[in-house]
């Protein structure tokens, strides 16, 4: 029994951390723009497809494929998402509604684009994060190597982001911009540049989550059209939207709740848990669990 609980906790946490990483992207976007990008999850899909192309199809080294994939997605974030859509809508003082609709349509377009470029058939992801057939066994508990990798990546991301925000000048400037654009620009911070940076970070980090999700969902449009994106939003909302690391806690909460609901209730209602949590937090605690970073 205890074994089952532990095992469920571990796989739930791994999944939850990935939702959380997507949530971090949502937070970084929200902090500087005050908007939610409904094409957010397509960054994860693009990340997975790019990585697959570089690593499996072009046989580039893994690290290089990884960096290239994330970099490309970040470029998409800066030049297409920000350069075209965000600028166009903000330029005419369009409201949130316009941004919601535009990014939703962008998401649909990207799904169709991916189908054209890579075909609609899911690609199996190579077992670079360990084979599910050959998991780690610690005293009767089965732990997938994938979960370990997720922990490693998330840990590295948290440490890296923390260092960036607290120790580097650019990171501090980005935080100042998130706090107050006018003050930041008075302080001589290039607000434009900072916005571009936050777009790059938001999409790039989500791409990492996409690559890590691929072993579970395959390299498929499911990554960009399914409800994983909503789970990312939910993690961010639960975490308080203004605190990227809060999103990780939100993601963990969702991941665990999901896994245990499968265990105790029924797998068919798995996704409902997320939505119930999301609505509960939106209504009862809209400020989320954590304060502004």
């Amino acid at each position: 029994m205890l074994q089952m609980v532990l095992q469920n906790s571990i796989s739930g946490m791994a999944m939850g951390l990935l939702y959380g990483v997507i949530g971090i992207g949502v937070c970084l976007f929200w902090q500087t723009t005050g908007l939610i990008n409904f094409a957010h999850i397509s960054s994860a899909m693009l990340g997975a497809y790019f990585f697959y192309t570089f690593y499996v199809m072009w046989k580039l080294p893994m690290v290089i494929s990884f960096i290239l994939a994330i970099g490309l997605v970040a470029l998409y974030g800066v030049f297409i998402l920000r350069g075209v859509i965000y600028k166009q809508i903000m330029g005419r003082k369009g409201g949130r509604l316009e941004f919601i609709v535009a990014t939703m349509m962008l998401n649909i377009f990207l799904l169709n684009l991916v189908v054209v470029l890579w075909g609609g058939v899911p690609y199996p992801f190579p077992n670079i994060f360990g084979s599910p057939m050959n998991p780690l066994r610690i005293g009767g508990i089965v732990v997938q190597y994938h979960s370990v990798w997720v922990l490693v990546f998330t840990g590295a991301l948290v440490i890296g982001l923390n260092f960036f925000f607290k120790r580097t000048l650019t990171g501090k400037a980005l935080r100042a911009t998130a706090q107050n654009k006018d003050t930041a620009s008075l302080m001589g911070i290039g607000v434009e540049k900072m916005t571009a940076l936050s777009f790059a970070l938001s999409t790039g980090i989500t791409a990492i989550a996409g690559i890590l999700l691929a072993p579970i969902y395959f390299v498929s449009v499911e990554l960009g059209g399914g409800i994983i994106g909503i789970k990312g939003f939910a993690s961010a909302v639960i975490g308080g939207l203004t605190n990227p690391f809060g999103a990780l806690v939100g993601g963990l909460l969702i991941g665990l709740a999901e896994n245990f609901s499968v265990f105790y209730i029924s797998s068919s209602y798995r996704d409902v848990i997320t939505f119930v949590l999301l609505v509960f937090f939106l209504i009862a605690r809209p400020q989320g669990l954590f304060k502004k970073m």
């Binding site: 939610i36 949130r96 939003f233 029924s266 209602y269 996704d271 409902v272 119930v276 609505v279």
Partner: peptide, 25 residues
């Protein structure tokens, strides 16, 4: 009554999914 904009849209998405899951199950 309480939410608007993004937060309302997220609730309506949640509503849509919940109804869908109920229909399926």
């Amino acid at each position: 009554f309480k939410l608007s904009g993004f937060f309302l849209s997220l609730t309506t998405i949640a509503f849509g999914h919940i109804v869908w899951v109920i229909i399926v199950n």
